[in-house]
Amino acid sequence: MADALALPAPAAMRRRGFGEAMAALSLAGPAMALMVLFLVGPLVVVVLLSATDYQLGARSLSYVGLANYAEMFADRVFRKSLENTLIYVAIVVPASVALGLGAALLIEAGTSLRAFYRAVYFLPVMATLIAMAIVWEFMLHPTLGLINLALREIGVEGYNWLQDRRTALFTLCGIGVWQSVGFNMVLFMAGLTAIPGELYEAAAVDGARTGLDRFRTVTWPMLGPVTLFVVVITAIRSFQVFDTVQVMTKGGPNRATEVLLYTMYSEGFSFFRTGYAAAVTVVFLVFVLALSLLKTWVLNRRVHYA
């Protein structure tokens, strides 16, 4: 019998390996199918569409090569849209990262009211942005709004914030900052709690006396990678600015707040110029993809830090 046993049972064993593969396939299969249907496929389609003159509902389409892109970069609206988006990102990112870091440091510097402050600063992250945009619109009302009423109390004449070409984009930036500070703050707080307390003790032993010394010798170097990471994800989120524009300014006045996603939305879903909107989408994708790759790189580096 022992000799008979020495022969393996390859067919039966192969069947068991097959079983594990089948199990994996049936477990991962639905997700994979949906991934192709809703992510990979559409991604390919959007790139292909950007080289066509397809209009939503049209029966046919033809290949136009880079015509959409040529038209786009010649178009004043698109150039304005790209410029506005970049300005928006360039303002919101440094402001909300700096304020988020400041809030995190100040809140963690003491113990009293810590939970209160954390909750208050985080509140705008949770609140439905579209509803808050409507509230902001009311607050920015030239005659009835809280902002101008308060300014009038101290003798300053306010602007018609959202209708004035000089202020509209910056006003939206302000709301963007207001909404992102809390998110950045909690990320920084997580980074702060990850700093081992012994490092501060070591720094104290080594002669770091003032708070600034401690910040420069321990906190900032330890927080560096987190900061880089927060900067990149805030940039990605800022690139996606849409809700406030759509509800408050519709890109106006005179394109002063036209941003990429809004251009994509109005071309694609108001004017149904799908091919052109796809080209705008591709430009948007290139920016976000570049930032995402930067983020992945940052994340990987941060792993090596730990």
Partner: peptide, 9 residues
């Protein structure tokens, strides 16, 4: 774990 060869009884 699956063996490459041999048998268990």
């Amino acid at each position: 774990e699956r063996q490459d060869g041999g048998s268990v009884a």
